[in-house]
């Protein structure tokens, strides 16, 4: 090693981090513990503090397939009701109908259209669960698996 080669600085007692000391805690009768849970730091300060990531292609699909108002509203509802991180929506068709103030059979037909296009995937029959392929809540690191699976292709000529 040359004379001017860089050497690692020798740690001084002031810069060495102290090892955390673990001490068992025993509670006696009448003792009280106060736990203050730390709130996660907010990464965004927009209205409501929540945002949704939508793939840009969804907007062209909405235009090319000429989705109606109620189909768009169902998409918005599913996007807002999806679980954080997984993208899964667990709602019955009755709940959707009550939320959108339309009939349940209309919800069934509209969901069928969206399923035919490929925007919505029905995971389970009976208790309806959906995975929205083009939208996710939260930050980019929390993209659900469905987002990766959404690199599929859609056919504008199905209709």
């Amino acid at each position: 090693m040359g004379r001017h080669a860089r050497r690692a600085p020798t740690p001084t007692p002031d810069t060495v981090a102290e090892a955390p000391q673990v001490q068992p805690l025993r509670l006696g009768r009448g003792d009280q513990i106060v736990v203050q849970r730390r709130q996660p730091p907010a990464k965004y300060d927009f209205v409501g503090g929540a945002f949704q990531q939508v793939t840009r292609s969804l907007f062209t699909i909405v235009k090319n397939f000429e989705l109606g108002r109620r189909e768009i509203l169902i998409l918005l509802l599913l996007g807002l009701e999806q679980e954080h991180g997984t993208g899964r929506v667990t709602m019955t068709q009755k709940e959707m109908a009550e939320e959108l103030e339309i009939h349940r059979t209309d919800v069934s037909n509209l969901l069928g259209n969206l399923r035919e296009i490929g925007l919505v995937i029905q995971v389970k029959r009976g208790y309806t669960s959906f995975i929205l392929a083009c939208s996710s809540l939260g930050a980019a690191t929390n993209r659900p698996r469905s987002w990766r699976r959404s690199r599929w292709m859609y056919r504008p000529s199905i209709r």
Binding site: V47, G48, G68, L73, G79, S150
Partner: peptide
């Protein structure tokens, strides 16, 4: 057409607010 990876961030509260507006299908599109 392959879906692209371009992401549009939207405010969730405003998306819910849009559903309550009197916008027609064409206006939403």
């Amino acid at each position: 057409v392959l879906l692209d990876d371009v992401v549009v961030n939207t405010n969730s509260v405003v998306l819910g607010h849009i559903a309550s507006l009197d916008l027609s299908g064409v206006e939403l599109r």
